[in-house]
Simulated scan of single mutants.
Amino acid sequence: MSTDVWLPIPPDEIEGLPQGPNYLYWDGGPEFPADPADCAFYVVPYMKPGEVGLRPLPEMTSVEVVQTLSAGTDNVEPGLKYLRPGVRLCNARGVHDASTAELTLALILASLRGIPDFVRAQDKGQWLGGFRPALADKTVLIVGYGAIGEAIEDRLVPFEVARVARVARSERTTARGPVHPLTELASLLPEADVVILATPLTDSTRGLVDGGFLARMKDGALLVNVARGPVVDTKALLAELESGRITAALDVVDPEPLPQGHPLWHAPGLLISPHVGGPTSAFLPRAKRLLVDQLGRFVNREPLRHVVRTTSATDV
């Protein structure tokens, strides 16, 4: 039985790892730490290009678990076709909730209150006064109401927003109110002052924010994307931004990283952050806790948490 566990964090820096497995450190370097065929539990390197994490998968003939340290798994899913049936793919639900929600609020407040304009004015020694929109009394629509969506709403509460509407793949009821299905999105968009994208990238959400979606947003609305770049049709968004009808704040873009000279860099009414929702001081302690818990479950043959999917013969 294979007992190798590949970790992108040095094992001696993770307190509480269960005894038994052979822990190996690999953070995407050119040399593998051992034969990939002996790996039973693979933790994908974090914040590396997609092809780096995929590289060992064709040789991982004994792997049982592929664990990401990101909330999304879209960067790993193209490699599932190399794996035998029964391999569990797990995400890092809970690791990035606080950091991503913090950034979401920062992007909203910076955009509404004109912080980028103040910074530019400061560079020129100019005093830029005047009225700006407040988050208070606004209607906010969260598209993608998973753990991160819930964390975003937690942080919206003290800002005295008028209403929060929630949209997810399936309809349900929460303690805070209803979660609407995607089929009701079109009717909710015209009411929202702020639209937050926190949905996973799937076949159904790729290009979700197209020309029709944007046209339904009210004049002066703010679009915030902390999900994945391809959820938004970049060309359609550029057209709306250049018209001045809406504004946007993007932590993720398509293409990513955004190349020099791309028109998004200079689009009016747009604030861009370079995909920094997750990498903060909050990441490492939460990632370590997740790995200790998951590996404890794996060693003791207990049910794993956050299983996104299990490979089958149709993946090959």
Rank of each mutant, 00 (worst) to 15 (best):
W6M: 04
P10T: 11
L17V: 08
L17F: 05
N22I: 08
Y23L: 13
D27F: 10
E31R: 11
D35E: 15
P36M: 03
F41I: 15
V52P: 05
R55Y: 00
P56Y: 03
A71S: 11
E77F: 02
G79C: 07
Y82A: 10
R84T: 01
R88S: 11
R88V: 03
G94S: 10
D97A: 10
D97W: 00
P116H: 12
R120W: 07
K124T: 06
G125W: 12
Q126C: 01
L128C: 01
P133G: 00
D137T: 12
G149Y: 01
R155N: 07
L156P: 14
P158T: 10
V161S: 09
A165N: 05
G177S: 12
T183N: 03
E191F: 01
E191T: 10
I196L: 12
P200T: 05
L208H: 04
V209M: 11
A221H: 04
N225C: 04
V231S: 04
E240W: 03
E242T: 13
I246S: 02
T247Q: 14
L250V: 00
V252F: 12
V253S: 09
Q260G: 06
P263C: 03
A267P: 08
A267K: 00
T280G: 03
S281P: 01
A287G: 09
V292T: 09
V292I: 09
L295S: 03
N300S: 15
R305Y: 06
H306K: 07
V308W: 06
